[in-house]
Amino acid sequence: MDNCYGQHGWKEFLRNRKDILTEFDKVREQTTNRPIHVAHGQAVEAYIRKWLAEFIPKKYAITSGYIIPDLYDNSGKIYHYDIIIYNRLEAPILWTEGNQDNSEQGKYRAIPAKHVVAVYEVKSRLTKDNVADALSKLDQTKDFSSQLNKNYTCGAIFIELKETDKNKESILKELCKGANVFGFSGGMVLRYEGDDTPTGIISIFNTESNSEAESIHCKPLAKRIDDLKIYITEEGNLEITEPGGGAIMVVTAENTWSVSKLYGVTYKEGSISVYLSWSRSNFSEFCINLLSALEGLPYNDKNRPSFGRVFDKIEQKINLSN
């Protein structure tokens, strides 16, 4: 991406993202002609766990496996989750499933509920059915939600949004149901088929308003970042005329702003809103949000980390009427 620059580490973060997608594409190609594609999903889940294990502070650990609540009988079913983040320093491993042929990231571990800080489900495509399945899995903690860590959050990671799904408002409508899932904060979409440079972030929030008069932009769910009508005018002002277009602006030097182009869509039901935004800076933004959530830092906290942001070189708009 020659038209980009960024904070320290931005190229390395984009490399991490590219490595995950390359692994996904490689395994998908290898399993295309196989009747069962289970290994496809498991391989990319393991790769994401490996990346997260290298990234997050070492007081946390990553596993696939089971959350074990405090119960007094064996009648309750225990559920498997793709990614469990837990307190490594305090949590006992109740049991491990796997054999010598499994990598560390391929083994299943059972973690007591009170030590679990975050859970993520991984899906290959952002579709209505996959959203419903992920939310159903994440909602299984509702019976013991009071036992989870005080900073507990959960979400979903989708590998890609296909071009054929970009106008399906039903995906956002299904995501809105995440408001009923304990700890659900949204998630990430690693790429859009029509432009593999941005990452999508899914956010869900309560607007504390039931007004239906608000203007809600719902589709398409994604656009090519370089096609967005975002320019610098001859007067030096930032001009955004793209429906759904926006910008993240950061002061990077005295009297200097750096800009990350943004495209976003919103779906609203009552007081609940889902926002899906796309930016080249969003992969590092997901990482920042994850670290902040693990530590219980709100969005506006001064101690939130800042690193790896990607900025776009904004084209100057020439006024042809002069």
Rank of each mutant, 00 (worst) to 15 (best):
D226I: 02
L94C: 05
K177P: 01
S64R: 10
I93E: 04
V44C: 13
G98D: 00
P220Q: 12
V117F: 10
A179F: 14
P35S: 13
I68Q: 09
I157M: 03
T207Y: 05
D133K: 15
K128A: 15
I48Y: 04
S103G: 11
P298N: 08
D73L: 14
Q100Y: 00
T32W: 08
F311L: 03
S271H: 14
Y86K: 07
Y86G: 04
L71H: 14
Y5R: 01
R28I: 09
D70E: 15
I232L: 04
V274G: 09
G98A: 00
F13A: 06
V117Q: 10
K18Q: 11
V122E: 03
S260I: 03
V38T: 12
E254C: 00
I318Y: 03
N255C: 05
D73K: 13
R191L: 15
T96R: 05
V122Y: 02
G183Y: 02
M249D: 09
N149P: 04
A118K: 09
G194E: 05
P92E: 05
N300T: 14
F55A: 04
V117E: 10
W10E: 01
Q30Y: 13
G178K: 02
H8P: 01
E285D: 13
E285R: 14
N74T: 15
A293W: 08
A43N: 08
D301N: 12
D227A: 11
D226R: 05
H217M: 13
F24R: 10
E315V: 07
I68T: 11
Y66V: 09
I20A: 08
M1P: 01
A110K: 06
L52V: 13
F182T: 12
A134G: 01
K219E: 14
G264A: 15
R125K: 15
Q147Y: 10
G270W: 14
Q140A: 08
Y120A: 07
E315S: 02
K128F: 11
F182L: 10
G106F: 00
L294Q: 03
A118V: 12
I201K: 10
R17S: 03
D101V: 00
G264N: 15
L14T: 03
S321W: 04
L161T: 02
T22P: 01
D139W: 08
D143T: 08
L291V: 02
T32F: 12
E174W: 02
A61V: 03
G245E: 08
E12H: 11
I62F: 10
A156E: 04
I248D: 07
T266A: 13
Q7K: 10
Q147G: 11
R28H: 13
K107V: 03
T233K: 01
T199R: 04
I68D: 02
P35C: 04
L262W: 01
L135E: 06
N322V: 03
Y120W: 13
G186R: 11
L126D: 08
K142H: 14
R191S: 14
D2W: 00
M1H: 00
E254S: 02
L71G: 12
N16L: 08
A113S: 15
P305V: 02
K18H: 09
K168C: 12
S215K: 12
K302N: 09
E54D: 14
E97C: 00
L71E: 15
T127Q: 06
C154V: 05
R309S: 09
N319T: 02
H40E: 15
P198L: 06
N206V: 06
V274W: 09
N102R: 00
N74P: 03
K114I: 07
